[in-house]
Amino acid sequence: MAPSDGLSIGEIAERTGLAVSAIRYYEDEGLVAPWRNASGRRRFQRADIRRLSFIMVAQQFGFTLAQIKAELDLLPRHRAPNKRDWARISTEFRDGLNARIARLEKLRDTLDGCIGCGCLSLEACALYNPRDAAAEKGQGPRYLLGDRPSDVTS
């Protein structure tokens, strides 16, 4: 691409709705890779509009910048991502979203039982965790992490 080609950071900001500072941050994190023209100004490819839009959407779904970067690193930098590229990413993200939805549904379905008794203590809860048996499985909220009371020996 010739140095006169490409979009300025202001044009990218206008097209994506992102602040210039956010675009610079994403550059620092390696999510976009503009080049510098002869006067040292950043220049972006049109494909960076899609990349930045993807970053914004993926963050709204709760994905971390590290997860987003891992996916973007698999995309070609020399051309706009095509339908097949996005299909692969959507499959990966769909799996992650489905797992997150399952965890949230479990939390939703069990949270009322925990809050309903008023004790708010898994150590003291005679219904969900008698004699703190869940501690045998490790640290943290074991049942919300996927363990079942039947998995714990007591």
Rank of each mutant, 00 (worst) to 15 (best):
Y25F: 10
T64W: 09
C117Y: 07
P130K: 02
D85F: 01
T91N: 14
R50L: 15
A66R: 11
G30L: 00
E29N: 09
D28E: 15
L97E: 00
K137Y: 01
D73P: 03
A124N: 14
R79M: 07
A66E: 12
L122W: 09
I55P: 08
D85N: 04
R148A: 06
G17R: 00
L122F: 12
A33D: 10
Q45Y: 10
G118K: 03
S39K: 08
R51G: 07
A99P: 07
R84C: 05
Q45N: 15
L75D: 04
R50S: 12
P149F: 01
G116Y: 01
S90V: 11
L97K: 07
V57W: 14
A2W: 09
L18Y: 06
G6H: 04
Q67G: 05
A99C: 03
V57M: 14
S53K: 13
S4M: 06
V32C: 08
L72Q: 02
G96F: 07
G140R: 03
A133F: 04
A58T: 07
G40S: 03
A99N: 10
R79H: 05
A133Y: 07
A99Q: 12
T153D: 08
S90T: 09
A2N: 13
A58F: 13
V57R: 15
T64G: 10
R36F: 04
A22L: 03
A134K: 06
Y128M: 15
V32M: 07
I68G: 02
C117F: 06
D151N: 03
N129R: 04
P81C: 01
R108Y: 10
S150T: 01
L127P: 09
T153F: 03
R131E: 11
D132R: 13
L31P: 10
R88G: 12
A47E: 08
C117S: 10
R36Y: 04
A70Y: 08
I23Q: 03
S150R: 01
R51D: 00
G10I: 05
D28M: 10
E92S: 13
N37G: 05
A2G: 11
Y128C: 14
T16Q: 05
T91S: 15
D151Y: 02
